[in-house]
């Protein structure tokens, strides 16, 4: 990746907050294996149920990431909760989509555990709605790949999602607005100095955010529906987040 001296320091600071991917991967893998070993050999989990568990564990790592982040630490827990309630599914989708960008294969998904999942067999297992969501994710990943999005830009996008000034009833609204502005400015500066020939990269990147939000809303609707029909494993962070936002 490009290493120019003129990179805005804030972008590097945001990148430093990113968790170690391999650490997250092995932690989630170990958790799922331990859970599986506690379950009888006969009780094999469905693909959907396994996906829910992966999403749930990824959410834990997202909360850990947020807690350790510059800016976020300065907020009171009440505001932290409001921000995370608002964007958890967007952060999950971005995490998934950017993993596919790095994976760079259209025929398979790279899961948070490092496992690869063949997409040709997905249709029969997952049903029409989930397959459609996955497909939309692949389209978004394709767009980001075309844009040649890099890790630093994704670090900025995560902050833009987290520090959403449209979240209601924040105690420290002004602070959230100022972080949003600072990160926007840093991302703009970063794209201009790192990709000087690619003048609209910033706006192209920012235009992906509403697409990401639309996809995450659809994914939430789907999860809600599955939850109401009793198919989502209970007592987890995923369901708590779903409740908090929809209640």
């Amino acid at each position: 990746s490009p290493q120019l001296p003129s990179q805005p320091p804030l972008v590097l600071e945001l990148l430093r907050c990113d968790p170690d991917e391999m650490q997250v991967q092995s932690k989630i893998m170990a958790f799922l294996q331990q859970e599986q070993s506690g379950r009888g050999r006969q009780e094999k989990l469905s693909t959907f149920s396994l996906m829910c568990r992966m999403a749930d564990q990824t959410l834990f790592s997202i909360v850990e990431w947020a807690r350790s982040c510059i800016f976020f630490k300065e907020l009171k827990v009440g505001d932290q909760m409001k921000l995370l309630h608002n964007c958890w599914s967007e952060l999950l989708v971005l995490d998934h989509v950017f993993r596919q960008v790095q994976h760079g294969k259209e025929s398979s998904l790279l899961l948070v555990t490092g496992q690869e999942m063949d997409l040709s067999s997905m249709g029969s297992q997952a049903g029409v709605t989930l397959s459609g969501l996955v497909q939309r994710g692949q389209v978004l990943a394709g767009r980001l790949l075309t844009l040649q999005v890099d890790r630093r830009e994704v670090a900025c996008l995560k902050f833009l999602l987290l520090f959403n000034p449209n979240v209601k009833l924040l105690e420290n609204q002004a602070f959230v607005e100022s972080v949003q502005e600072q990160v926007n400015g840093a991302l703009l500066e970063y794209t201009l100095c790192t990709y000087p020939l690619y003048l609209d990269k910033f706006s192209q990147l920012v235009m992906r955010l509403p697409e990401l939000r639309a996809l995450s809303t659809q994914a939430e609707d789907y999860l809600c529906y599955k939850h109401l029909s009793g198919e989502v494993p209970c007592n987890n962070l995923l369901i708590e987040m779903l409740h908090a936002k929809r209640a």
Binding site: E64, Q80, M81, E240
Partner: peptide
Amino acid sequence: KKKDNALLRYLLDKDDNT
């Protein structure tokens, strides 16, 4: 009425007591 998200609150609150 919003349900309190106890698990999230716990995750955000932990280690922050002292």
